[in-house]
Design a protein around this nucleic acid. Sequence first.
DNA 1: AATGAATGAGGTTTCATTCAT
DNA 2: AATGAATGAAACCTCATTCAT
Lengths: 209, 209, 209, 209
Amino acid sequence: MEKEPRLQSETARRILAAARDVFAEHGFAGTTVDAIAKSAGVNKATLYYQIGDKETLYAEVVRSVLESTVDDFQKGIRQAKTPEEQLRHYIRTMAATVEGNPWLPRIILRELAGGGVSLPEVVLQSFGRLLVALTEILDAGAKEGIFVKTPPFLIHMMVMGALIFYKTSAPIRARAPQLLAEKILQGRQPSSLEVASEVETLILKAVLK
Amino acid sequence: MEKEPRLQSETARRILAAARDVFAEHGFAGTTVDAIAKSAGVNKATLYYQIGDKETLYAEVVRSVLESTVDDFQKGIRQAKTPEEQLRHYIRTMAATVEGNPWLPRIILRELAGGGVSLPEVVLQSFGRLLVALTEILDAGAKEGIFVKTPPFLIHMMVMGALIFYKTSAPIRARAPQLLAEKILQGRQPSSLEVASEVETLILKAVLK
Amino acid sequence: MEKEPRLQSETARRILAAARDVFAEHGFAGTTVDAIAKSAGVNKATLYYQIGDKETLYAEVVRSVLESTVDDFQKGIRQAKTPEEQLRHYIRTMAATVEGNPWLPRIILRELAGGGVSLPEVVLQSFGRLLVALTEILDAGAKEGIFVKTPPFLIHMMVMGALIFYKTSAPIRARAPQLLAEKILQGRQPSSLEVASEVETLILKAVLK
Amino acid sequence: MEKEPRLQSETARRILAAARDVFAEHGFAGTTVDAIAKSAGVNKATLYYQIGDKETLYAEVVRSVLESTVDDFQKGIRQAKTPEEQLRHYIRTMAATVEGNPWLPRIILRELAGGGVSLPEVVLQSFGRLLVALTEILDAGAKEGIFVKTPPFLIHMMVMGALIFYKTSAPIRARAPQLLAEKILQGRQPSSLEVASEVETLILKAVLK
DNA sequence: AATGAATGAGGTTTCATTCAT
DNA sequence: AATGAATGAAACCTCATTCAT
């Protein structure tokens, strides 16, 4: 249950990668162990030998996905100097992470829907550190008199919400009737990166004095 | 598969209400027909007699929940006059709807996570009408020179994202270590309505010239 | 788990009868639910619907087998008057019960081997009542001066042990080399009832003053 | 399948000792090869390399346990002179063997319950020799006119039955309600050796003229 | 309209055994 | 001689669905 990722065998890594994709696609209950094993190219019993039961497997996937994600976040943020630059960096890093980890948004959505019952303590702590970083950025900006005072949690929700909702609603948007799409989206389906830059613009306008 | 809602018997309504709650709690795959029947206080066979199979039941739940929600939205928006008032009204209506329908956020999250495969056409259309309304508000504001030009879809994502994420992350926030909570939330867990009003402030600041 | 036997459906009775035989033959771990279902002529899922899981099924079998057995015992004993007659009756009743319930000896042996972990409280109580009856017989005989004082539990063990061991060792005796059998058994394989009568003779001789 | 015991390696002995305990505890079907390997502190594959498959392992355990037991029996019996002394010795030796080999009673019970299908020929022969010895004792006593004529097999069953049942019923007796225990056992739980001596008294009284 | 009962299909997990090292 | 890893087969159990009443 508590395998040090660095010590994982190649087989275990293959299984976890497969599990990550299948869980992201179908959720916990909708995923069958058979599907994971097949996707990983191993026998079902091997999966149990290497990792454990379905719940352990899921917990391990959630942990590794969210923890590594948060690590990426933090590295990104430290590179900027002024609060404004840091806040921009924060948004860009989040966008890049969402973009680079296609399974992430859906796993986050499902965890939220499920009340986060599968989130291990260690993930909560990583998350906390991320929010602390954002809090420090906003506080610094407020102290310098360039930001209005805003609750960090809310900023996080708006940024994450916009990015994740935009990303995951893609298949639904694709089904929109032609006419509608033109009216609302002006015929364009902006890429995630364009959206991220628009989010950046809006959030900055909302926060800057 | 397509029962006219007005013709529903009392039994059918009880089943659908139970299904709505159980599906919201556990998702489609995580829900058993047995659990719905038990929660509705009817025999499983009765459920099949009244509604149909599990998929039909889910589709019916999603349809009724989202469609009625969108109807509420639209009624709310029309009551305001100036674009600014309308935009505020839009956000407040959304917040009130999320607040008044506890099952809504989780169903939306799961639908997004699942790519919206269970969303019937009619729901997409309702959604479209909602976005058209928002588009008209933003366009009117831009034409009057009080709003900057912003993509309506993005505004929608930011508002919905913030509201739904805040609502559904409550159980996770409750697990946050004391120290962290104080730093980030300053010890307060604002109510959903307070959050909605802060979202309103931020969005308006972002959109107003 | 606590079905009143009188209220059991025909199907449930068929399943329990099949389970009784298969468990007696192969023990708990050696029995598959598939085998019971097949032997009962019902679908495996029906078995779960009617009774419950394997453990519940086994507990129910042990309970019903041992409880009804003890009831038989008690009826038999009450019919005799003098302590000597009662003690003879006790032994004969036990022999008849072992003879009439082929699955009983093996289930008792397995329960003893397993430490009786599956014996429900109610079975223990029945057993207790049986031993109380035997105790009263021996005490009465001792008071009348016709029995020597002997521990009731030991008498019970010797009688049961002899009867059950004789019964269950039949397949092993059948494998004995010809020559040996002649020497030990004088070529005869006495029937269970003959053995019971010899047990009766021996026990009485041991107990009578 | 037939390894000469003298040639067994230390590892093989460790495995067999572990197997003996685990099989006694859980029976053949209830035992997993994993459990034995773990209990022996060796890798599962080593177990297969050293002994063979599960059935071979079990047969080897049964053979060694019962055979060595019978050897002990025979040594003990030869030390006494008169038939009465020999018969007493027989019972005491059996009691001592049961007492000194805690796994023996349960393995015997399970073998009886299973019809002795796992008893190898060699075990049957040892058993036969034991019964021949008992037969000779009883015959000698009868010829000297001090014993009544009794079937040796029955004596064996009664003695073994009483000893083994008493031993293995200990956990069940421990669960007996206080009140009952006092009535039947007069508050005492006699040790196995006390019980053996009472068995001796009773059997001798039954057999002596 | 409602239900107890039944079931095929499929899900999760275990286990004896083998193999490459 | 010993072991970590792998696996086919089979075990237990669940669940959506149907049917007779």
